[in-house]
Design a protein around this nucleic acid. Structure first.
Lengths: 132, 132
DNA sequence: GCGTGATTACTCGGATACAAGATGTCCGAGTTTGAGCGG
DNA sequence: CCGCTCAAACTCGGACATCTTGTATCCGAGTAATCACGC
């Protein structure tokens, strides 16, 4: 039960895209190089963000990735759900009489975390970083 | 990023142990049968709970597992940490200038979840179940 | 100067490879209970 | 009735086996910009 590296890559990439121009796309090579990942692997991760409608890809020369929404609308939870999936973290597949009480508790805990990740926006981090 | 089945087994087993007598140990066969797991595998999981000091094992005939603390003191978080480990869910191993802002946000979110799991005690569930 | 084709710089997607972790299984070893047996 | 021995019922721990998932690479295909060339 740990977040994958892919999520880490995605979050860091998104932070760069938020800080970058919303018009001119950023090439995957540049994004990959600053994180020490291979460009092919990063593009595979970013494809999931594209399918989630968070960013969009521009083909051809001078192509790359850029945001497809207002940067103020992008939360941590959006990115994490795009990479890790939206399934519940805990799934009790036993056949109890009724709902599983344990699962109920786990779901509440999970929602606490998601609530916080929904409030956290990348724009705030980008501002902090440029201040330094 | 999902909780393992082992955690599910551990939580359900603990719920039974809390509901059972604190003196007489419960055999692993009985615990495993009610969950549809093999006894050997379940005992492997319970060993981790023993090492964490949550339960204790009694060898020999009429042996089994029983709580080693007051049932009121056992939280969800204790069990989850014993099974999944206490490491942080998100680990950024990049070399930033200073602390990683993204990791800070993730850690806060994780603490929100842990705080809830720390408040949740198995005794409350055991009481609810016997009421039904 | 202007269109047209070739080249170049990109992303996309599938196929594949590899490693690690989750999920079990098997078996020998140690430990306690309790039954059986002899005195 | 008492003590000893032995079998049975357990847990413990390590060594495997298997399956899924994460992590990553490679390559061919498609696409857009740019450059070269001929008119």
């Amino acid at each position: 039960m740990r977040f994958t590296k892919a999520t880490n890559y995605a979050l860091h990439t998104m932070l760069m895209l938020v800080a970058a121009s919303p018009v001119k796309p950023v090439g995957v090579q540049q994004l990959a190089e600053s994180q020490g990942v291979s460009p092919t692997y990063l593009s595979k991760i970013l494809t999931r963000l594209v399918k989630a409608g968070i960013i969009e890809s521009i083909s051809g020369a001078n192509g790359g990735y850029r945001l497809s929404r207002k940067k103020e609308d992008i939360t941590f939870l959006d990115i994490i759900h795009a990479i890790e999936g939206t399934a519940s973290l805990f799934e009790c597949d036993f056949v109890h009489g009724d709902e599983c009480l344990i699962q109920a508790v786990m779901k509440e805990a999970e929602e606490k975390m998601e609530w916080h990740l929904k409030k956290a926006k990348l724009v705030d981090l980008a501002q902090k970083q440029t201040q330094v």
